[in-house]
Design a protein around this nucleic acid. Structure first.
Lengths: 210, 210
DNA sequence: TATGAAATTATACAAGTGTATAATAAGAAG
DNA sequence: CTTCTTATTATACACTTGTATAATTTCATA
């Protein structure tokens, strides 16, 4: 009858969900959370708006899923290179610092995304849970690396000290990442990784620079 | 005629403007940027919505003014105590670190505000300008303090080194401030200032703890 | 007390918001 | 080829948004 109705192709549920999350992230990165309207998301994902509700019972669900995916992606971008990094724990730690403070991790779009999400951590319990989860995942992974580095240089530390070191190093990374992402043009190439290596090296008392 | 019309009192323009900014900040802190609608702002400020446009030609203007005020307030809260802090440059630096990582600077509401604003730094040139301004103000002030501390301990540094130290120390403060504000319950009282003092002390090679 | 500038209210408007629901079409299963 | 599930489209709805503009009221000044 109505041949003006849009023809479509069924996709595997996972792929559609992914496409919707992709579209959401892309929109928030570019135009902030307010740009991620259901209509924009649907448009970008190449579907009509009604479909969103078929996969996510509410828009907040979709936003939450997008946040979790973004943080996981960032963590993966930071840690994935380390697995092939064999030389030793200290070298791996140095590589982590460099990776955390270089593109694509240090990136204005990623920061805009992160900021758009973090702002809702206070009042939205679901978002807070996701934040806590990803934050501790990252910090714990960092703590493992720090522990191994201390062992490697023959100065093992106890759990309490390790915790403090992990918090401090994580703060350095967060802070530098933030500065570099928010005002990328005010730092020379390689400046942030260099400062990160020197600072974390000083905090731990382990020389990280090559 | 129409006696249902709201009676009002003229206020000094500056005070009204302040009241509108206050209302804006309060709303963003509590409910995020999306809660800061012109109607909510007017309601909270005890005026009707049309008045906003009389003081700010657009809502973005108001948001920008609110951002600048918030950052200035935070900077003031961080630095104001230092003026009476006489003992010396190292002590002043230590006091700054402690102040930066304790209430009221470290505060979930302040963080929500900051995040709500920072997210628009990328795409809004006006907001970016405000961000750059306040960021450099803070970092430069920090650099002055670091310089004085180095001189006090008899190890003066050149400008380039000072810049790197300021960036690093600022990152530590930002990072710890962020962690403490986002997840206040996961740190013991005084833990963050202690970690901050130890870390910045290690980075500079100056003992800051008492 | 009368005048006038501008601070303030009131109202209207077009556009956009998230959500709900009914209609349709695709594609697998039989 | 037919049936049936459900992925997808289409449409409607009630509400909120920022802005524009006209109507009023306040208060300083003369």
């Amino acid at each position: 009858m109505n041949d003006s109705r849009k023809s479509f192709k069924r996709e595997a549920p996972d792929q559609r969900q992914d496409a919707l999350i992709d579209a959401t992230l892309s929109l928030i990165a570019t135009g902030g959370p307010e740009a991620a309207t259901v209509r924009n998301i649907a448009l970008k994902a190449g579907v009509t708006q009604g479909l969103i509700r078929h996969y996510f019972s509410t828009k907040e669900d979709l936003i939450g899923a997008a946040y979790e995916r973004h943080m996981t992606t960032m963590r993966y971008a930071t840690y994935s290179t380390l697995e092939r990094e064999l030389p030793g724990a200290v070298a791996r730690l140095g590589a982590l610092v460099t990776a955390s403070l270089s593109p694509p991790v240090t990136d204005p779009r990623a920061m805009a995304l992160w900021a758009g999400f973090i702002q809702s951590v206070q009042r939205d319990t679901a978002m807070r849970a996701i934040h806590e989860k990803t934050y501790f995942q990252f910090r714990d992974q960092l703590q493992v690396l720090i522990n191994e580095a201390f062992i490697e240089v023959g100065q093992p530390k106890d759990k309490m000290d390790l915790r403090k070191f992990a918090i401090a190093c994580n703060a350095v990374l967060d802070g530098l990442w933030l500065e570099g992402s928010a005002l990328p043009d005010t730092f020379e190439t390689g400046e942030l990784p260099a400062i990160g290596l020197a600072s974390i090296g000083a905090i731990l008392g382990i020389k990280l620079e090559v």
